[in-house]
């Protein structure tokens, strides 16, 4: 049961979406609404989603956030969070993001799962995810918290659509049966310099565990992942700040590369 009223949820959704659309830094919303709970936080996120859909935006996928143990420990939380991806977030391999449209973007190397069967929690496990997966492909997420200096708590970040803002997809698609998802390596380079390396297990021990957790979290609201869903699993590497003029390339073991620019 949430503690906020419907008008409060709507007001906070408008506040956070305006911050996104107008590149405004705001303070974390739990400062003014300390009694809000996790259900309220997700209600705000789903209200932002409803606002976008009502304006004609399509929701093209979902993402998991805070999926590494290091990040969860840093935040003092035991659970990751999720967010949605709107059509205008998407960038192709080699594409550009206008830095001025964002506040203080960072990039993360991820993988995306595309499903061919629905996943409905609770009780979804890694095997269910692997069976329901059509293919896996590389993805790079751009995150941009609307909170000043990325200072937030878990409830505030959930309400802020888990800092989602843009994402690049590219590289090569592959069947899960042909990949060693736990050990798959990624190398992130910015302006030609290696800045981060990691492997799939950095995400909850196995990338498919992240998709399973998403399906189970969605089931708490009676939602599911329909067949054809695009799901980004969360960061394999630390998030790295990018500046105007930067270009990046992320190289994936056996999956090719994803590159892009901030202009």
């Amino acid at each position: 049961m949430g503690n906020l009223t419907k008008p409060e949820i709507e007001q906070l959704a408008e506040h956070l979406e305006n911050a996104e659309l107008q590149q405004l830094e705001v303070v974390k919303i739990t400062d003014d609404f300390p009694h809000m709970d996790y259900e309220d936080a997700f209600d705000i996120q789903w209200e932002i989603r409803r606002r976008k859909e009502s304006r004609g935006n399509k929701i093209v996928g979902m993402k998991m956030g805070l999926t590494s143990w290091a990040k969860m420990k840093q935040m003092g939380v035991e659970n990751p969070c999720y967010g949605f991806l709107a059509d205008y977030f998407s960038r192709p391999d080699g594409g550009e993001v206008k830095h001025d449209e964002l506040i203080h973007p960072k990039i993360e190397a991820e993988l995306a799962f595309v499903t061919k069967q629905p996943l409905k929690g609770p009780g979804v496990n890694i095997a269910d995810v692997l069976r329901a997966t059509d293919f896996v492909m590389p993805a790079v997420e751009v995150i941009d918290s609307r909170y000043k200096d990325f200072k937030f708590d878990l409830k505030s970040v959930i309400a802020d659509n888990s800092s989602s803002t843009r994402f690049f997809t590219g590289g090569r698609m592959a069947d899960v049966a042909d990949l060693d998802l736990k050990n798959i390596g990624v190398v992130m380079e910015i302006n030609g310099e290696v800045v981060e390396t990691g492997a799939g297990a950095a995400v909850l021990g196995h990338p498919a565990a992240s998709v399973a957790m998403l399906a189970n979290m969605l089931s708490e609201r009676g939602e599911e992942l329909p067949a054809g869903s695009f799901v980004m699993i969360g960061a394999i590497t630390a998030a790295v700040q990018v500046n105007k003029g930067d270009s990046f390339i992320v190289r994936y073991q056996d999956l090719g590369t994803v590159s892009g620019k901030f202009v």
Binding site: G198, A199, R251
Partner: peptide, 26 residues
């Protein structure tokens, strides 16, 4: 591909770090 091959390190059953070949001089 020794530059992109990933590494996972587990100590006493817990994953403690991951990396890839490029961490070693590219």
């Amino acid at each position: 591909d020794m530059s992109t091959c990933g590494m996972v390190v587990e100590k006493n059953g817990a994953i403690i770090s991951t990396g890839a070949g490029a961490a070693v001089m590219g």
